[in-house]
Design a binder for these strands. Structure first.
Lengths: 211, 211
DNA sequence: CGCTTAATTGATCAGGGTCAATCGTGGTGG
DNA sequence: CCACCACGATTGACCCTGATCAATTAAGCG
């Protein structure tokens, strides 16, 4: 939105191009809800989930982040969710303080930061839209479509997360997720090459049936 | 986040302090999904909803906006939802182009714009969290808590929207919303002064029961 | 090749959707 | 001022979907 204004300026540092790299192994926590929100984090490889835990032990997954995604945006000073490595991850972290200084200096940098925050907003809005569907089939179909749109090959999805993760992202149980996938398979909408490798046979039909 | 850096600068124009005022009467559209996203809008009075319509005619409400809220943030060039006046509204609109120019000139202005976008992000994340609850009672309780936190008097809520609006916001039917409120009343959690005037008798208990 | 974890399938039941009727309330006109 | 009307809200009856508890199968992985 703002970047149109800075096209004539000299080149500026690309947002989050460099910084301290960290490796986090599968299942480990990256930061916890309530921690001081000191850093923004960019994913170089692997899969990250941000989630909240309810008092009854149930988990709600807020978002998944893959290569080139940036997460950790907060309006306040504390993280409102926890972040965990779904698979082994390599990440880059950037101190908020440093980011703020750069943004104040370089217009293009500020533009990129703003664009990243808007991207997070869109992600969250899309998630809410998916959760707003009443039937499990609709939620699942919407989830698969979201995955395929983010994937490099549109008709083939490599899921990095478990059925349980999907369930916690969609507000369902893992059994319902499993049954739903089976149903979509029987309906001829998808093909399960393996448990986490899905081919979408007819994307427009998937949209049509479960929009 | 960024504003800490600009405390020593001279006073800057407050974000969205002035602009063209528009009056929109109850039920009228403010903008439609797919329109060019030319303006940000601030609510002076009244209640606004942003929503999407599914192919089957169902409506999903994305967010409600009241006094001092700013809406219309988009990552792309088009609005991804429609905006409608739930009640008669007075609004101020700001052209994105002008906002961008001001943000490029004044650091404090850019900070405020960024803060507003993060506020929208938090709103959306909170909405997703509410929608992620499995039971209707939990969703309703979370909705009431959200309302009370936004309200001036924490224990008394004046709902500006219908049961149908609430249902479309929570992914429920209006009947379930109605039944849920009745149940909360019978449980001694709330008191219905009138259909849209609710007193929360025991906020912590509401949180405890339905977190 | 066995062991551990993930995924699928089955049976049952409660919760919420659906269709329909009733009640309440605010606004309008006689 | 009151009766009527229209719309929103509530309640009822029934059914279907998805949660729950439990068992089985499949798949990684040492």
């Amino acid at each position: 939105m703002l970047s149109q204004l800075s096209q004539t300026r000299p080149p500026e540092p690309t947002l989050l191009a460099t910084g301290p790299v960290l490796h986090v192994s599968r299942g480990r926590e990256i930061y916890a809800e309530g921690n001081s929100a000191d850093v923004l984090i960019k994913v170089l490889s692997g899969l990250v989930r941000t989630c909240k835990f309810k008092r009854d032990g149930r988990r709600q997954i807020d978002a998944f982040y893959t290569r080139d995604d940036v997460f950790g945006f907060e309006a306040g000073t504390l993280y409102s969710r926890s972040a965990e490595a779904v698979s082994d991850c390599t990440l880059v972290s950037y101190r908020r303080r440093d980011v703020a200084i750069l943004a104040a200096k370089h217009q293009g940098f500020a533009d990129q930061l703003y664009a990243y925050s808007l991207r997070s907003l869109v992600r969250s809005q899309d998630h809410a839209r998916i959760l707003g569907h009443t039937s499990a089939a609709e939620k699942l179909a919407a989830f698969l479509i979201e995955c395929s749109e983010r994937s490099s090959q549109k008709d083939c999805i490599m899921l990095g997360m478990s059925r349980m993760d999907i369930a916690d992202y969609l507000g369902l149980t893992e059994e319902t997720v499993s049954r739903g996938l089976t149903q979509l398979r029987l309906d001829g909408c998808i093909e399960l090459l393996s448990a986490r490798h899905i081919r979408i046979l007819n994307p427009p039909r998937l949209r049509e049936l479960y929009a």
